[in-house]
């Protein structure tokens, strides 16, 4: 479907993706192409397979059939663990529950992905990087705090900072504004856009929050019956007469 957006290099391509849990088929021949610098939101009902989709992309779930080509030459489901880890360092994943490590300080949380990916640096560089990363999310003063001392919105920002510390090329957001009040939701959505521009990432955003989808995405995928039912801009989809799409946009 033509959206009027200038097409650049394909950074992620999903072809005929199928995923089932027992007899429940969640994704059926799902196709999607993400271009460099593009931000696509995925809208769908609860249990429609939105989170399953991005967990397949990052390799946390294995699809039964289909291909996920990242950066042009790597089919994620067929990669070994070592290659998968290299790809994962280029793909950020913001978890719905933030998934901050409770037993570690904010600083340790931020540095965890670096150490895991064998990126060695001296303490001064670490301090600088932690400060810069936290400053980007507006929480430079929280480095020595524990996640339990932070509010929901702050935890989301720290989780975002941890994800961005490896400077990923692709960002996957799993319901980034769930559980937040409308004001904080808007702040997080704007922060996502700001960081998309700053880090020059391409993103897939899973969300129920129409405001978040409107602010953060260039295009929206309607995930219905496990397939890519429609792909268009937010405004175009909002004006559609298709009742299956309309129900998402009704007040």
């Amino acid at each position: 479907m033509e959206t009027g957006i200038t097409k650049s290099k394909v950074i992620l391509e999903i072809k005929n993706l199928n995923k089932s849990f027992g007899s429940n088929t969640v994704l059926k021949n799902f196709n999607l192409t993400l271009h460099e610098g593009e931000n696509i939101a995925v809208l769908g009902k609860s249990g429609s397979g939105k989170s399953v989709l991005i967990k397949c992309i990052i390799g946390l779930l294995m699809p039964e059939k289909g291909e996920i080509w990242a950066f042009g030459d790597k089919n994620i489901p067929s990669l070994g663990l070592e290659e998968l880890d290299i790809i994962r360092s280029k793909i950020g994943f913001l978890f719905q529950s933030n998934a901050l490590y409770d037993s570690m300080t904010v600083r340790q949380n931020i540095l965890f992905p670096l150490r895991r990916h064998w990126i060695e640096m001296d303490k001064d560089h670490e301090d600088l990087l932690v400060h810069e990363t936290l400053q980007n999310v507006g929480l430079a003063h929280t480095a020595e705090m524990m996640p339990s001392e932070l509010s929901g919105g702050m935890r989301k920002r720290i989780a975002l900072a941890r994800t961005l510390v490896l400077k990923p090329k692709i960002m996957l957001y799993d319901e980034p504004t769930t559980g937040l009040d409308p004001i904080t939701s808007r702040e997080i959505s704007r922060l996502i856009v700001e960081l998309q521009e700053k880090y020059k990432t391409s993103s897939i955003i899973i969300s129920h929050d129409l405001n978040c989808v409107r602010i953060t995405s260039d295009k929206v995928v309607m995930l219905i019956d496990g397939t890519c039912y429609a792909l268009d801009t937010f405004d175009q989809l909002k004006q559609t007469k298709d009742p299956r799409i309309r129900e998402f946009f009704e007040e």
Partner: peptide
């Protein structure tokens, strides 16, 4: 158990651990 339900174990895997 708590790490599992709050997706911390998944986050570790994604971080290359």
């Amino acid at each position: 158990g708590s790490m599992k339900v709050t997706e911390q174990i998944d986050a570790m895997e994604v971080s290359g651990t």
